[in-house]
């Protein structure tokens, strides 16, 4: 009886399955169709080979650099923060989560614009530095500013998954390690870090993907001087109105993301297999 009921309730997912088909799968087929055709609707591979164009290649390479640096900085900043939060033993976990989501209620673009204020030559940061007698820095409209903006924007996406995976670790395991004579750094590198790997991986993906493809942060904080692959694609759609080329480059970007993720997963598998018992 119950099992029959189960098959019946599984149809509740029906409307969503239809939605996925129309709004997730079908659009991807559309983008693939546009990528494989030219203006006249004829089959072509030109939109893919266009990536070999030095301008495109350069922007892809720059995006990759920015994404890697952003991800690494986020990871280095986020892990200690997640660890500290975890050790606070706050009973109300959702409160912590909210503290990191709360800034999102201030419009994302306004927040990035506020960084312009902070970073500009006569901005808040330089005034503070001058006051402290440390000289000034000029990073607005450079790659550094773009990276800073991305780190700012995506840091919560790194902290939250790591924090979640840390809170899933059984305290007994840590105590057992201490009981067996492990020092804090041994516990961190041999116990905590490997056990929070899942959180690290999903954090890395959630930071790497948007920072590889973002175009708004580079527009606002790069001042048009930092041309990422996201900017190139956006311009193909809004300025050049070459949808086919834009679609082709989007597909390339997608493939690039998938490749990076599968390399990351492989690394992870290799790590698992090679772990000494």
């Amino acid at each position: 009886m119950i099992s029959k009921l189960r098959t019946r309730t599984s149809f509740l997912a029906g409307p969503y399955a239809l939605w996925v088909l129309i709004c997730t799968v079908l659009p991807l087929l559309f983008i693939l169709y546009y990528a494989l055709t030219n203006d006249n609707g004829h089959f072509t591979l030109d939109n893919f080979t266009a990536i070999a164009d030095p301008i495109h290649l350069k922007s892809l390479w720059l995006s990759f650099q920015v994404a890697i640096i952003t991800t690494v900085i986020c990871l280095i900043m986020a892990y200690p923060a997640a660890l500290i939060l975890h050790n606070l033993k706050i009973s109300n976990k959702s409160f912590v989560v909210f503290l990191f989501i709360l800034p999102m209620w201030m419009n994302f673009m306004l927040r990035i614009l506020a960084w312009q204020n902070i970073l500009s030559n006569n901005g808040i940061l330089n005034n503070i530095l001058k006051f402290l007698g440390l000289g000034t820095i000029h990073i607005l409209y450079t790659k550094s500013a773009v990276i800073l903006g991305m780190v700012y924007d995506f840091l919560p996406y790194m902290i939250l998954p790591i924090y979640n995976s840390l809170s899933k670790i059984n305290d007994d395991i840590v105590e057992a390690a201490a009981d067996l004579g492990a020092k804090w750094h041994t516990i961190l590198f041999r116990i905590t870090l490997p056990l929070s790997k899942d959180g690290i991986i999903s954090g890395v993906i959630m930071v790497f993907v948007p920072s590889l493809s973002s175009f708004v942060v580079s527009n606002l904080l790069g001042g048009g001087k930092v041309l990422l692959i996201g900017n190139v694609i956006e311009q193909e759609f809004t300025l050049a109105r070459n949808w086919n080329l834009g679609s082709g480059l989007s597909i390339i970007l997608m493939i690039f993301v998938l490749l990076s993720m599968s390399i990351m997963n492989n690394e992870d598998d290799a790590g698992k297999g090679g772990m000494p018992l």
Binding site: P27, E234, V257
Partner: peptide
């Protein structure tokens, strides 16, 4: 939609 780049999701939906 979670893993795909926002720009790709946006463009693909626009094309549809």
């Amino acid at each position: 939609p979670l893993l795909n780049a926002d720009i790709v999701t946006g463009i693909s939906l626009m094309l549809l």
